[in-house]
Amino acid sequence: MSETTAAETTAEGGHGAVPTGPEIPSGAEPTRATARRDWPLYECFVRGKRGLNHVHVGSLHAPDDEMAVHAARDLFTRRNEGVSIWVVRASDITASSPDEKDPMFAPAGDKVYRHPTFYEIPENVPHI
């Protein structure tokens, strides 16, 4: 198939029907040289309220740390969703492999004794 036909449209995005066929082929790639392309990606974390951890809410691009905080404020906390924001460059994050079956998490799998449910307590013992 070389062109998008209306038969290849479907309801997708929330805002409605958009084509799902192959992209319309076009000649040259756009050659616009913009600075925006080079803005680093920041991961954003919001503390919903006092007493809670910061939680990852998404990512954005910004030219520097300060602008990233401002942009995160506008993007993620328009309705008092948070009392504090962290931003960190995505490239500075070191992550484990995503698979839970990864050896990294394997040692935890057989240490069930780390969980409270491992210990049987008689029902007549309160508050434990």
Partner: peptide, 18 residues
């Protein structure tokens, strides 16, 4: 992201008909 925007503007990706 910038590439996706370019594709929209070049008419190579679509948006909702509405």
């Amino acid at each position: 992201r910038a590439d996706l925007t370019d594709k929209l503007i070049e008419g190579r990706q679509k948006y909702s008909s509405i």
